[in-house]
């Protein structure tokens, strides 16, 4: 690809001109990461309680703590890189992070793009909404507005089952979709048990769960072809599940033990 080379040269020149010395973060193996001494982990910061910003604006949450545990295990510094729902996979594939601990639901479509570890967290996804509205299954979505975060698991699930006259409104993130529900712009939304628990503390009795869409396991993701790194992560997860460390983090952040379908795996 001739054009591509030119572009790289151009970008290189631009980078030099701008005085940047940031190298690509393209570590594929445990050894590379350990040699560099840092691991770059992408995580969400707008997905409480998994990924949040703390009071001083630093990434925190369950995902951040799992990443911390992993970095400790690797014996390297942790560099947390905030990503967003729609851009987390591009971030990984374009080498800006080594690993995603970004509440990424394990789906067949995503499995074609990235390699997943065994589950480290799990959520159940529901159609959720106005308590006065009776919806018991997909046919109840007919003619309704349903808010979802674009490209989220609930987006995929609802798109699959919704009748053609349901109006799925796609927002940039979960928070905007919650906002649409709370402000009454949509009577329904696709939401996880975690988001639902938060909405219920915020606005008790206004909403209820309509029906379950999916049990969703979340995995740590790496670039395809990083088998050795993935093996390490799987072995690490097996250990922290067995010794209760992962469960403790889950208790701390989510307010309950790891779901059984996550804890049991491997």
């Amino acid at each position: 690809m001739k054009l591509n080379k030119k572009l790289i040269a151009l970008a290189g020149a631009a980078a030099l001109a701008a005085g940047m010395v940031a190298g690509p973060a393209a570590a594929q193996s445990v050894e590379e990461i350990q040699q560099r001494g840092t691991v770059n982990v992408g995580l969400l910061v707008d997905f409480p309680p998994f990924g949040i910003l703390d009071q001083s604006g630093n990434p925190d949450g369950y995902d951040a703590d799992v990443a911390r545990l992993l970095a400790e295990d690797l014996g390297v510094e942790l560099n947390l890189v905030p990503v967003t729902g729609p851009n987390r996979i591009p971030y990984l594939l374009s080498n800006q992070v080594d690993i995603l601990v970004a509440s990424l639901g394990i789906t067949p479509e995503r499995d074609e793009q990235v390699d997943f570890s065994q589950p480290y967290a799990g959520i159940e996804i529901f159609v959720f909404g106005d308590a006065n509205l009776e919806v018991t299954g997909p046919e109840g979505l007919s003619g309704q507005n349903i808010a979802v975060a674009r490209a989220s698991t609930q987006d995929t699930a609802i798109t699959e089952i919704a009748p053609s006259d349901a109006n799925i409104q796609r927002f940039d993130d979960d928070a905007s979709a919650v906002q649409a529900l709370l402000s009454g712009q949509t009577p329904l939304m696709g939401a996880s048990n975690v988001v639902i628990a938060q909405i219920n503390t915020m606005a008790p009795d206004r909403f209820d769960t309509k029906f379950s869409l999916r049990q969703q396991s979340q995995g740590i993701a790496v670039r395809p072809g990083s088998d050795e790194l993935l093996g390490y992560i799987n072995e690490f997860l097996g250990r922290v599940k067995a010794d209760g460390q992962l469960n403790a983090l889950h208790e701390e952040w989510v307010g309950g033990p790891l779901p059984e379908f996550v804890a049991e795996t491997e």
Partner: peptide, 11 residues
């Protein structure tokens, strides 16, 4: 564009 990007990742 955002919708296509989020399903194909060809950002």
């Amino acid at each position: 564009g955002n919708n296509i990007q989020s399903t194909t990742f060809a950002a």
